Simulated scan of single mutants.
Amino acid sequence: MTGTNRPASVARPHPGTAMTGEQRAAFERDGFLVVPGVLSEDEIAHYTTAVDRVYEEHATAGKLAADRSLHKLNAVDSCTDLAPLLDHPKVFGLVWSMLGWNVHVYHSHLDVHPPLTEEKPFRFEWHQDGGRQNREIETDPRPRLSVKIAYWLSDLSATGRGNFQVVPGSHTTNRIDGPPRRDMAWPNPDNAIEVTANPGDAVFFDRRIWHARSNNHSRITRKGVFFAYTYRWVQTRETMTADLPDLTPVRRQLLGLQDGDGDHAWGHYPSGVPLHGLLKDHDLLDPNNPPLKP
Protein backbone atom coordinates (compact mmCIF):
# COMPACT_ATOMS: atom_id res chain seq x y z
CA MET A 1 0.00 0.00 0.00
CA THR A 2 2.92 2.32 -0.53
CA GLY A 3 1.95 5.69 -1.98
CA THR A 4 3.81 7.53 -4.70
CA ASN A 5 3.81 11.07 -3.33
CA ARG A 6 6.05 11.08 -0.31
CA PRO A 7 6.70 14.34 1.56
CA ALA A 8 10.11 15.86 0.94
CA SER A 9 10.95 15.42 4.64
CA VAL A 10 10.76 11.61 4.51
CA ALA A 11 14.49 11.19 5.27
CA ARG A 12 15.03 12.25 8.88
CA PRO A 13 18.37 11.10 10.25
CA HIS A 14 18.21 13.30 13.36
CA PRO A 15 16.65 11.71 16.48
CA GLY A 16 15.02 14.92 17.67
CA THR A 17 15.64 16.80 20.90
CA ALA A 18 15.47 15.63 24.47
CA MET A 19 12.45 16.34 26.62
CA THR A 20 12.73 19.65 28.46
CA GLY A 21 12.58 19.85 32.24
CA GLU A 22 9.20 21.57 31.97
CA GLN A 23 7.84 18.82 29.71
CA ARG A 24 9.14 16.10 32.02
CA ALA A 25 7.55 17.70 35.07
CA ALA A 26 4.21 18.06 33.28
CA PHE A 27 4.36 14.49 31.97
CA GLU A 28 5.18 13.04 35.38
CA ARG A 29 2.36 15.09 36.92
CA ASP A 30 -0.38 14.63 34.30
CA GLY A 31 0.61 11.46 32.41
CA PHE A 32 0.31 13.11 29.00
CA LEU A 33 1.51 16.03 26.89
CA VAL A 34 -0.09 17.81 23.92
CA VAL A 35 2.64 18.73 21.42
CA PRO A 36 1.35 21.36 18.98
CA GLY A 37 2.32 21.65 15.33
CA VAL A 38 4.25 18.41 14.95
CA LEU A 39 3.09 17.87 11.36
CA SER A 40 3.27 20.49 8.63
CA GLU A 41 0.32 21.17 6.33
CA ASP A 42 1.99 19.08 3.61
CA GLU A 43 2.52 16.20 6.03
CA ILE A 44 -1.08 16.38 7.23
CA ALA A 45 -2.30 16.23 3.63
CA HIS A 46 0.07 13.37 2.76
CA TYR A 47 -0.79 11.17 5.73
CA THR A 48 -4.50 11.94 5.48
CA THR A 49 -4.45 10.77 1.86
CA ALA A 50 -2.65 7.59 2.90
CA VAL A 51 -5.11 6.83 5.72
CA ASP A 52 -8.09 7.64 3.46
CA ARG A 53 -6.76 5.16 0.91
CA VAL A 54 -6.65 2.38 3.48
CA TYR A 55 -10.11 3.31 4.69
CA GLU A 56 -11.59 3.18 1.19
CA GLU A 57 -9.95 -0.19 0.54
CA HIS A 58 -11.61 -1.59 3.66
CA ALA A 59 -14.93 0.07 2.81
CA THR A 60 -14.87 -1.48 -0.66
CA ALA A 61 -14.06 -4.89 0.83
CA GLY A 62 -16.88 -4.59 3.39
CA LYS A 63 -14.41 -4.65 6.30
CA LEU A 64 -15.56 -1.61 8.25
CA ALA A 65 -17.26 -1.81 11.64
CA ALA A 66 -21.02 -1.44 11.88
CA ASP A 67 -20.65 2.30 12.52
CA ARG A 68 -18.34 2.55 9.46
CA SER A 69 -15.29 3.11 11.65
CA LEU A 70 -11.87 1.56 11.08
CA HIS A 71 -9.42 0.56 13.81
CA LYS A 72 -6.55 -0.97 11.82
CA LEU A 73 -3.71 -2.57 13.76
CA ASN A 74 -0.07 -2.76 12.62
CA ALA A 75 -0.04 0.74 11.15
CA VAL A 76 3.12 0.68 9.01
CA ASP A 77 2.50 -2.79 7.63
CA SER A 78 -1.05 -1.71 6.79
CA CYS A 79 0.03 1.62 5.29
CA THR A 80 3.74 1.87 4.56
CA ASP A 81 3.50 5.63 3.91
CA LEU A 82 3.25 6.03 7.68
CA ALA A 83 6.83 4.83 8.33
CA PRO A 84 8.30 8.35 8.75
CA LEU A 85 6.01 8.87 11.74
CA LEU A 86 7.91 6.18 13.66
CA ASP A 87 10.65 8.64 14.57
CA HIS A 88 9.34 12.08 13.71
CA PRO A 89 11.99 14.46 15.10
CA LYS A 90 9.46 16.88 16.60
CA VAL A 91 8.17 14.25 19.02
CA PHE A 92 10.46 11.18 18.97
CA GLY A 93 12.78 12.76 21.52
CA LEU A 94 10.03 12.39 24.11
CA VAL A 95 10.12 8.61 23.60
CA TRP A 96 13.84 8.08 24.12
CA SER A 97 13.90 10.66 26.89
CA MET A 98 11.48 8.51 28.87
CA LEU A 99 12.47 4.97 27.84
CA GLY A 100 16.05 5.28 26.57
CA TRP A 101 17.52 3.84 23.38
CA ASN A 102 16.64 0.12 23.66
CA VAL A 103 13.09 0.52 22.36
CA HIS A 104 10.78 -0.68 19.61
CA VAL A 105 7.17 -0.23 18.55
CA TYR A 106 5.17 -3.12 19.97
CA HIS A 107 1.72 -1.90 18.99
CA SER A 108 0.30 0.60 16.49
CA HIS A 109 -2.93 1.43 14.71
CA LEU A 110 -4.61 3.91 12.40
CA ASP A 111 -8.11 5.04 13.27
CA VAL A 112 -10.96 6.55 11.26
CA HIS A 113 -14.21 7.33 13.10
CA PRO A 114 -16.92 9.07 11.05
CA PRO A 115 -19.73 10.95 12.82
CA LEU A 116 -22.22 8.64 14.47
CA THR A 117 -25.55 8.46 12.69
CA GLU A 118 -27.32 6.81 15.63
CA GLU A 119 -26.67 6.41 19.33
CA LYS A 120 -24.41 3.48 20.19
CA PRO A 121 -25.26 1.04 23.00
CA PHE A 122 -23.43 2.11 26.14
CA ARG A 123 -20.08 0.50 26.86
CA PHE A 124 -17.68 1.58 29.59
CA GLU A 125 -14.42 1.91 27.64
CA TRP A 126 -12.10 3.45 30.22
CA HIS A 127 -8.86 1.48 30.43
CA GLN A 128 -5.10 1.47 30.80
CA ASP A 129 -3.02 0.18 27.89
CA GLY A 130 -1.02 -2.99 28.27
CA GLY A 131 -3.72 -5.63 28.66
CA ARG A 132 -2.59 -8.44 30.97
CA GLN A 133 0.17 -6.26 32.42
CA ASN A 134 -2.57 -4.64 34.48
CA ARG A 135 -3.59 -7.97 36.02
CA GLU A 136 -0.29 -9.76 36.41
CA ILE A 137 2.12 -7.12 37.76
CA GLU A 138 1.51 -6.64 41.44
CA THR A 139 3.26 -3.32 42.19
CA ASP A 140 1.37 -0.15 43.07
CA PRO A 141 1.67 1.83 40.94
CA ARG A 142 2.50 -0.56 38.14
CA PRO A 143 5.58 0.29 36.04
CA ARG A 144 5.30 2.59 33.04
CA LEU A 145 6.71 -0.01 30.55
CA SER A 146 5.48 1.83 27.46
CA VAL A 147 4.51 5.23 26.08
CA LYS A 148 2.35 6.15 23.12
CA ILE A 149 2.16 8.89 20.49
CA ALA A 150 -1.12 9.85 18.81
CA TYR A 151 -0.80 11.95 15.65
CA TRP A 152 -4.01 13.83 14.85
CA LEU A 153 -4.95 14.40 11.21
CA SER A 154 -8.38 15.93 11.83
CA ASP A 155 -9.63 18.96 13.76
CA LEU A 156 -10.28 17.97 17.36
CA SER A 157 -10.09 21.52 18.67
CA ALA A 158 -13.60 21.19 20.14
CA THR A 159 -15.05 18.43 22.29
CA GLY A 160 -17.60 15.92 21.04
CA ARG A 161 -15.53 14.89 18.02
CA GLY A 162 -14.37 11.49 19.26
CA ASN A 163 -11.71 13.17 21.37
CA PHE A 164 -9.12 11.33 23.41
CA GLN A 165 -10.40 11.38 27.01
CA VAL A 166 -8.09 11.12 30.02
CA VAL A 167 -8.10 11.47 33.76
CA PRO A 168 -5.05 13.71 34.31
CA GLY A 169 -2.65 12.25 36.85
CA SER A 170 -4.29 8.82 36.87
CA HIS A 171 -1.16 7.07 35.52
CA THR A 172 -0.10 6.37 39.11
CA THR A 173 -3.48 4.88 40.01
CA ASN A 174 -4.00 1.15 39.52
CA ARG A 175 -7.78 1.30 39.75
CA ILE A 176 -10.70 3.60 39.02
CA ASP A 177 -14.37 3.08 39.84
CA GLY A 178 -16.31 1.32 37.10
CA PRO A 179 -19.45 -0.72 36.59
CA PRO A 180 -19.67 -4.45 37.34
CA ARG A 181 -20.38 -4.98 33.62
CA ARG A 182 -19.13 -2.81 30.77
CA ASP A 183 -22.62 -2.53 29.26
CA MET A 184 -24.08 -1.01 32.44
CA ALA A 185 -24.58 2.77 32.26
CA TRP A 186 -21.96 4.49 34.36
CA PRO A 187 -20.64 8.06 34.59
CA ASN A 188 -17.20 9.06 33.42
CA PRO A 189 -14.51 8.98 36.12
CA ASP A 190 -14.12 12.04 38.29
CA ASN A 191 -11.96 14.79 36.73
CA ALA A 192 -12.10 13.22 33.23
CA ILE A 193 -11.46 15.62 30.35
CA GLU A 194 -11.63 15.52 26.56
CA VAL A 195 -8.24 16.49 25.13
CA THR A 196 -8.55 19.01 22.31
CA ALA A 197 -6.01 19.22 19.48
CA ASN A 198 -5.55 20.78 16.07
CA PRO A 199 -4.67 18.86 12.90
CA GLY A 200 -0.95 18.10 13.07
CA ASP A 201 -0.77 18.08 16.85
CA ALA A 202 0.42 15.00 18.72
CA VAL A 203 -0.46 13.64 22.14
CA PHE A 204 2.27 11.79 24.02
CA PHE A 205 1.00 9.67 26.90
CA ASP A 206 1.94 7.13 29.53
CA ARG A 207 0.30 3.76 28.87
CA ARG A 208 -0.98 3.68 32.46
CA ILE A 209 -3.14 6.80 32.19
CA TRP A 210 -6.83 5.93 32.35
CA HIS A 211 -8.28 6.91 28.99
CA ALA A 212 -11.05 6.29 26.47
CA ARG A 213 -12.31 7.60 23.14
CA SER A 214 -15.43 9.75 23.30
CA ASN A 215 -18.26 9.30 20.82
CA ASN A 216 -18.11 11.45 17.70
CA HIS A 217 -21.29 13.54 17.57
CA SER A 218 -19.82 16.19 15.26
CA ARG A 219 -19.75 16.55 11.48
CA ILE A 220 -16.00 15.85 11.37
CA THR A 221 -14.43 12.44 10.76
CA ARG A 222 -11.85 11.68 13.44
CA LYS A 223 -8.55 10.43 11.97
CA GLY A 224 -5.38 9.55 13.84
CA VAL A 225 -2.30 7.33 13.83
CA PHE A 226 -0.94 5.77 17.03
CA PHE A 227 2.44 4.25 17.91
CA ALA A 228 3.22 2.56 21.23
CA TYR A 229 6.87 2.18 22.24
CA THR A 230 8.33 -0.21 24.78
CA TYR A 231 11.59 -1.91 25.63
CA ARG A 232 12.89 -4.39 23.06
CA TRP A 233 12.76 -7.22 25.60
CA VAL A 234 8.97 -6.88 25.65
CA GLN A 235 7.24 -8.96 22.99
CA THR A 236 5.70 -7.03 20.09
CA ARG A 237 2.05 -7.57 19.13
CA GLU A 238 2.83 -7.08 15.45
CA THR A 239 4.78 -8.64 12.59
CA MET A 240 6.21 -6.51 9.80
CA THR A 241 5.80 -8.20 6.42
CA ALA A 242 6.05 -5.32 3.93
CA ASP A 243 9.30 -4.99 1.99
CA LEU A 244 10.59 -1.48 2.66
CA PRO A 245 14.18 -1.31 1.46
CA ASP A 246 14.44 2.43 2.16
CA LEU A 247 13.91 2.16 5.93
CA THR A 248 16.59 3.83 8.03
CA PRO A 249 18.40 1.67 10.62
CA VAL A 250 16.49 3.36 13.45
CA ARG A 251 13.15 2.64 11.78
CA ARG A 252 14.22 -0.98 11.29
CA GLN A 253 14.93 -1.13 15.01
CA LEU A 254 11.52 0.34 15.85
CA LEU A 255 9.78 -2.19 13.59
CA GLY A 256 11.66 -5.15 15.08
CA LEU A 257 13.63 -5.82 11.90
CA GLN A 258 17.08 -5.71 13.48
CA ASP A 259 19.11 -8.90 13.22
CA GLY A 260 20.27 -10.57 16.40
CA ASP A 261 19.31 -12.97 19.15
CA GLY A 262 17.55 -12.36 22.46
CA ASP A 263 20.63 -10.82 24.03
CA HIS A 264 20.62 -8.26 21.24
CA ALA A 265 17.03 -7.27 22.09
CA TRP A 266 17.97 -7.03 25.77
CA GLY A 267 20.47 -4.32 24.89
CA HIS A 268 23.66 -6.12 25.93
CA TYR A 269 25.41 -4.77 22.82
CA PRO A 270 24.57 -1.07 22.46
CA SER A 271 27.03 -0.59 19.62
CA GLY A 272 24.69 -2.69 17.47
CA VAL A 273 21.54 -0.75 18.40
CA PRO A 274 20.95 1.99 15.79
CA LEU A 275 19.24 4.49 18.09
CA HIS A 276 22.06 4.22 20.63
CA GLY A 277 24.57 5.03 17.89
CA LEU A 278 22.50 7.92 16.55
CA LEU A 279 22.07 9.50 19.97
CA LYS A 280 25.80 9.04 20.62
CA ASP A 281 26.65 10.76 17.33
CA HIS A 282 24.55 13.76 18.36
CA ASP A 283 25.78 13.78 21.98
CA LEU A 284 22.27 13.04 23.22
CA LEU A 285 22.84 9.89 25.28
CA ASP A 286 21.26 10.09 28.72
CA PRO A 287 23.63 8.97 31.49
CA ASN A 288 20.59 7.55 33.28
CA ASN A 289 20.36 4.90 30.54
CA PRO A 290 23.89 3.43 30.50
CA PRO A 291 24.80 0.16 28.76
CA LEU A 292 24.58 -2.96 30.88
CA LYS A 293 27.87 -3.81 32.55
CA PRO A 294 29.26 -7.35 32.00
Rank of each mutant, 00 (worst) to 15 (best):
L39Y: 01
A45W: 05
T49E: 12
L70Y: 11
H58K: 15
L70A: 12
L70P: 03
T49L: 03
Y47V: 08
R53N: 13
T48Q: 11
E43C: 09
T49H: 04
K63H: 10
Y47I: 04
R68P: 00
H58T: 03
D42R: 08
R53A: 15
E57D: 15
R53F: 09
K63V: 00
E57M: 10
G62R: 06
E56D: 14
S69Y: 07
E56I: 06
A61W: 01
A61H: 01
Y55D: 02
V51S: 04
H71L: 13
S40W: 06
K72A: 13
G62K: 06
L64R: 07
L70V: 05
T49W: 02
G62N: 03
Y47M: 05
L70H: 06
A66C: 01
K72W: 07
H46C: 13
R68N: 10
K63M: 11
L39V: 07
T49Q: 09
T48L: 07
E41V: 13
L73V: 05
E57W: 01
E43G: 05
H71G: 04
L70I: 09
A45F: 02
K72F: 07
G62A: 04
H46V: 08
S69T: 11
K72S: 06
V54I: 09
T49M: 00
H58E: 14
R53K: 13
L64S: 02
S40V: 05
D52G: 05
V51E: 09
V54T: 11
I44K: 01
L39S: 02
A65S: 14
D67M: 00
A59G: 01
K72Q: 15
A66M: 10
V51Y: 03
D52I: 04
Y55T: 03
V51G: 07
H71I: 08
A59R: 15
V54E: 12
G62S: 10
A50V: 04
A45T: 13
D67V: 06
A65H: 12
H46F: 15
A45R: 14
D42V: 10
V54A: 13
L39Q: 05
L73A: 09
D42N: 08
R68S: 11
A61F: 02
Y55I: 04
D52N: 15
A50F: 10
I44Q: 10
T48V: 03
V54D: 07
L73W: 09
T48I: 03
L39R: 11
